[in-house]
Each structure stands twice: as structure tokens, then as C-alpha cells.
Amino acid sequence: MNKEIESSVSVDKSEQSVSAEFVADSYTTVGEPLLDDPKISIRNGNVFYAEKQAIFDVNLDIGKQQVISMIGPSGCGKSTFIRCLNRMNDTIDICRVEGEFRMDGEDIHDSKLDVVELRARVGMVFQKPNPFPKSIYENVAYGARIHGLTDNRVQLDELVEQSLIRCGLWNEVKDRLDEPGTGLSGGQQQRLCIARAIAVDPQVILMDEPCSALDPIATATIEELINELSESFTICIVTHSMQQAARVSTRTAYFHLGKLIEVNDTAKVFTNPEHQLTEEYITGRIG
């Protein structure tokens, strides 16, 4: 398991030659990385895989009910970064996280904080749809079961129904809730994973390239869903598609080789980027 994640986040050597001017160890993120009253705030975030540093001194605030997209070439540390927000990196033995990661002022990486509780508040949707090999119902009910959210079957049924309705999946699956979740189409599976995540009522949802394995129609459905969910949740989405970033997010953060280069309103990043690397990336000269 560890190896796979490692390879997906390790810095790709071939990309390094592209970074023309940007070599300095100390740098400042351009744009507006900091906010008033943020949901999540990161100060001097550093991540290492064994000796190798994957994230360098990231300072970033993520606002409440905001959709922020992380863009950047492969291996730039986007996934590694958002996995720090629900401590999924704990599962990788060689991974070490330093710096201050706070959610509502509370230190996420505090050893006293129960990671189970954190992950209930910070849900995650993965790149490849990964429903459990159980029924559709059980997939959505699982989080409620392990966190003891409901008292009885009636409440649980209600919760499952609501979660599926919010993801627009209810009408498609209401007659076959006992069928395996893995029998759905790719897009439906991904919406099921989102339903599963929102069923435990998180405050933040992390999405790691949620549409990269889907066709354009399923992608459009998911994007619509993200727009709807943004009214109730803080969403961090990693994406390789700049169009997607433009469509779903209000803020965009551009990562390059583990450094946070630029954070700005999405419109500004795509029309008038401040940093040269950002511009090179969005115009297709990098990545």
C-alpha cells in the first residue's frame, strides 16, 4: 500500500529541468495565501519522505465553505499536501510532517488528537473510485455505523437516503440498495464515495483528483455536485484539469516541486497569473 502512494507523490525528476528561474530555497508565495477567520490554516508546512523533502514551507489558509483547487504538474506535492489535512500520511511509515496545521484553531497533528475523530470531520474522496465491496446501502451506512451516528435502523435508512439524494444518486439506485456498490458505473461509484463521505457529516471534504478516472459526462455530474456541496462544506480539490479548477473552485493554489507558488482567486490565476511559473503552467509550457 505504501509503495503505491509513495510513487504517486514522489517528485518526478524530469520535471525539474523545466523550472527555469525558480531554484531558490527561500521563496514567498505570491498572491493571497492568508485569510481572515480561516477553516484550516497551515504555517511552515514541511513534509518529508525519509530524507527527501516533498513539501517546502507551505503557508496557506483555507476559508470556510470555500472550494480551493490545487493545481500543478505531476509530483509537485498536491496530493501529499491535502493528505496532511486528514493525516492520511500517517499510514506511510517513512512520511514525516512538520509545521503547524490547524483546523478551527486546533492542531491537526497534535498527538493527543484522535485521528479517527479528525477523519470523521475531514472526509476524503480518492482518485480512483473505491467503494467497499459491499452493498450500496452498506457503503453509505458504514461511516455512521463505525462512528455510532444513528440510534436505530430507521434513522440509518433516513441518513443513507439523504446522503444519496444529496449526491443525486438516489433515483438511480433506490431500487437496488442491496446490490454491490462496485457494480455501479465509474461515475456512480465516485458519487457513491462522495455520499459515503458526506454521510458522516464532515466539515471539510478532500478530493484527490476525483474525476481523473471518469468520462466527461460523469465528470460534469461530479462538478455540478461539488458546486452544490460547496454551500455546506469546505472542499479542497486536487485536479489536473485547469478547466475543472476554473469551473468548481473560488480559489486556486499552484504548486511546483513541493513549493506553493501562487494562491489567488481562481479567475485571477487563470486570467492574470502573478508568477511566471503559474503562467507557464496554465499556458501549457510546464506539465
Binding site: 500500500m1 503505491e4 492520511m88 499510514t91 477523519r119 470523521a120 467497499f132
Partner: peptide, 21 residues
């Protein structure tokens, strides 16, 4: 491994992940 990630990402403990999935 995606099954393990899914369970851990839902907030299942390590033992729950192993026993349930």
C-alpha cells in the same frame, strides 16, 4: 490498498479496517 485507504479515510481505526474490509 484502495479499500484500506477508503476505510481509513472514513475514520475507521486500523483494527476496524482489517476486520471489516
Amino acid at each position: 490498498p484502495s479499500i484500506r485507504e477508503a476505510a481509513l479515510g472514513m475514520g475507521a481505526s486500523k483494527v476496524q479496517t482489517v476486520i471489516h474490509h
